[in-house]
Simulated assay, not measured.
Amino acid sequence: MQRLRSSLRWSRFPRSILYWSPLLFFSAHQFPIHTVLGRSMQPTLNPDESMLRSDIGLFCRLPIYGEDFRRGDIVAMRSPTNPHRMLIKRIIALPGDTVKALQPYPAAQVDIPEGHMWVEGDDPYHSYDSNHFGAVPLGLVESKLTGLLWPLERAGSVNRLHSSQRALERRRLRDNRLVKPIPSQKHSVRDSRDDISPRFIT
């Protein structure tokens, strides 16, 4: 009798997998988990100067469908110079903004055209970003950082990363580089995206 009950219990197991598989697939696809490599986003991400461990972030693809991009968002995006490479950068300026560029960009100021954004790393001296390749299409965004999963002492919502005194000072400096920000901070991404899963490089 016990053996019969056990076999019945196992016979229901595949059905449970089939029942929950759409939800599991949706979660894995819309909320990817990625390891952040490199130092371009220090001190926000990978603040360990020895680089012995890397942050693991929870990203979300839903904002790209809901047309929800804001200055200061940290996004995962395809490199405009190599579509097989992924970058993690911060959105500095959006369409209609005028931003003061940093070296080595050849112009002192840049007007961001419609459908584009200006992205940078938080460590400008170790970042390959818009100051090298200019404004990039919003359609290159793959997902937006929502929080950290690892290390545990820093785990939590992305808002926690932006609440320190150091983070607030950096935000003030970024805001001062916007010459002509437009009132609305919400912009759309209209193209479809394929699922790509290389390790992330910043």
Rank of each mutant, 00 (worst) to 15 (best):
L168W: 13
G66L: 04
E153T: 08
L102V: 06
L102Q: 13
F69I: 07
Y105G: 04
L168N: 13
D129Q: 08
E142L: 15
G96C: 09
D123S: 15
E169K: 15
R166T: 12
V75G: 10
G72D: 08
R78T: 15
M77R: 09
S163T: 04
D68I: 01
V119C: 13
E142M: 15
V119K: 10
V141R: 01
G134Q: 08
P113I: 12
K144R: 13
S143T: 10
S157R: 10
Y128R: 10
D68A: 08
K89D: 09
G96D: 07
G134D: 00
N159S: 02
V136N: 07
V75L: 11
R71H: 08
R154V: 05
R78G: 08
P95M: 11
H116R: 14
S127I: 01
R78P: 06
D111S: 13
I74Q: 09
H126G: 03
H116C: 10
A107G: 05
Y125I: 09
R78H: 11
S127H: 06
G115M: 02
H132L: 04
D68M: 06
G121T: 13
D97W: 08
L173Y: 07
I91Y: 00
F133V: 01
V75C: 11
A155G: 11
A155I: 05
V99S: 10
S79Y: 00
G156A: 04
Y125M: 10
S79M: 01
Y125T: 15
L145H: 01
A107V: 12
L87G: 08
K144S: 01
Y105C: 03
G156D: 04
G156Q: 02
L161N: 02
T98W: 02
V119W: 09
L102I: 05
V119D: 09
R90E: 12
E114Q: 14
V158K: 14
P113G: 14
H162N: 14
S157M: 08
R166L: 03
V110W: 00
I88M: 14
A93W: 07
R170S: 05
R174A: 13
L168M: 15
Y65H: 15
Y65N: 12
H116A: 09
R171G: 04
V110D: 02
H84A: 13
I64F: 03
V99K: 07
E169M: 12
D73E: 03
Q103W: 01
L138W: 00
Y105F: 03
P151N: 10
A101C: 15
Q165K: 14
M117K: 10
